[in-house]
Simulated scan of single mutants.
Amino acid sequence: MVSQGTTSATPATDAPGVVERDRPGAGERIAAVAEQTWRPLALLVACFAAWWAISAFKLVAEYLVPSPGATFEVLTGKWGYIWQHTWVTTYETLLGFAIAVAVGVFAAVIMVYSTTVERTLYPILLFAQVIPKIAIAPLFVVWMGFGIGPKIVVAVLIAFFPVVISMVAGLKAVDPEMLQLSATMGAGPMATFVKIRLPASLPHLFSGLKVAVTLAVTGAVVGEFVGANEGLGYVILQANGNLDTPMLFAGLLVMSAIGVALFVVVEVAERLLLPWHASRRDGAVTTAY
């Protein structure tokens, strides 16, 4: 017989078949990071080794594929010039990505809460997505000139679709029973969105953001290809016209580095903002039968 005020429920970690794991220490975390990164690093080293072998054994003419040494000599010797254009492309990418996220999330929310808007807007989004952006980029140059505007617009158009699609999928993936429970408890539409729909959609949204942020780099460079006097796209076009393949390869490497860095930033933001998600747990409590 249990006296009043005494809790008779068995703690979750004392229940049969439930094992509580210790939180990983610093050494275990470093080992986990090493386990996740050694494969891509090994592949990257292999790619650079193949690049070096191709240039060292003269398998391809040097004006077609420069050596890693010549490329890195350009990176270090003309770093001021490259950095100036890198900053321009990075600024265009970040601004275009931010606009794409804001507009994409807003459009997704409207589409989820309004069937009419979804049926009207969704086909237009698909139509706009399949149009090659390089084909319509010259129109933006004609309409907006050779300034920063066309590059941002192209970046927005390319990054917008993954954001809106992932956000719509996340908002629709909410458990209907949770929505019914919130309605039963008297929660209004805004409270339901903030407390249930939005948190549940964030894992899907971040998946789209990681795709969108890399596409935004491509969009900015595509806009620079069409008409610009600065930016990495301009550097690559100038190097291509002058057959300066070391500078061309340097521009491509820096452009890739921007995409990887922004991807990592979004990945870190996801880890910080979604520690509760199943994909981010280290397994504090698991079942063992």
Rank of each mutant, 00 (worst) to 15 (best):
M1T: 10
M1C: 06
V2D: 06
V2Y: 11
Q4G: 09
T6E: 09
T7W: 04
G17I: 07
G17D: 02
V19K: 08
G25P: 00
A26I: 14
E28T: 15
E28K: 05
V33S: 10
E35T: 03
E35Q: 13
E35M: 09
T37W: 07
T37V: 08
T37H: 08
L41I: 13
L44Q: 09
A46F: 15
A46I: 15
F48Y: 02
A49C: 14
W52D: 14
A53C: 12
K58V: 12
P66I: 00
P68F: 04
G69L: 08
A70T: 00
A70F: 00
T71D: 00
L75T: 02
T76C: 08
T86E: 04
T86L: 01
T86R: 03
V88H: 06
Y91M: 12
L94D: 05
L94F: 10
A98H: 05
V101T: 11
F106A: 15
A107S: 13
V112M: 07
S114F: 01
T116F: 13
L125E: 10
A128I: 12
I131A: 00
P132R: 00
A135F: 00
I136R: 01
A137N: 01
P138M: 02
V141A: 07
V142C: 04
M144R: 10
G145P: 12
I148H: 04
G149Q: 12
K151Y: 04
V156F: 02
V156H: 01
V156M: 02
A159Q: 08
F160M: 12
V163L: 08
S166K: 06
M167C: 06
G170Q: 07
K172L: 11
A173M: 09
V174S: 01
D175K: 11
E177Q: 15
M178E: 07
L179M: 15
L181C: 09
S182D: 07
G186Q: 10
A187H: 08
A191I: 07
F193K: 10
K195R: 06
I196M: 08
R197I: 07
R197Q: 12
L205W: 11
L209V: 14
L215N: 03
V217C: 01
V217K: 01
V217T: 00
V217P: 03
T218I: 15
V221T: 10
G227M: 06
G227S: 04
A228V: 01
A228M: 10
N229E: 13
E230N: 13
E230L: 11
E230P: 12
E230R: 13
G231M: 00
G231N: 02
G231W: 05
Q238T: 15
G241D: 09
N242H: 08
L243R: 10
P246C: 11
F249N: 02
F249E: 02
L252C: 15
V254P: 05
S256M: 04
S256N: 02
S256F: 06
S256Y: 04
I258G: 10
G259F: 14
V260A: 14
E270D: 11
E270S: 11
L272S: 06
L274Q: 14
W276T: 06
R280T: 10
R280V: 11
R280S: 14
A284G: 01
V285F: 13
T286L: 08
T286R: 03
T287R: 07
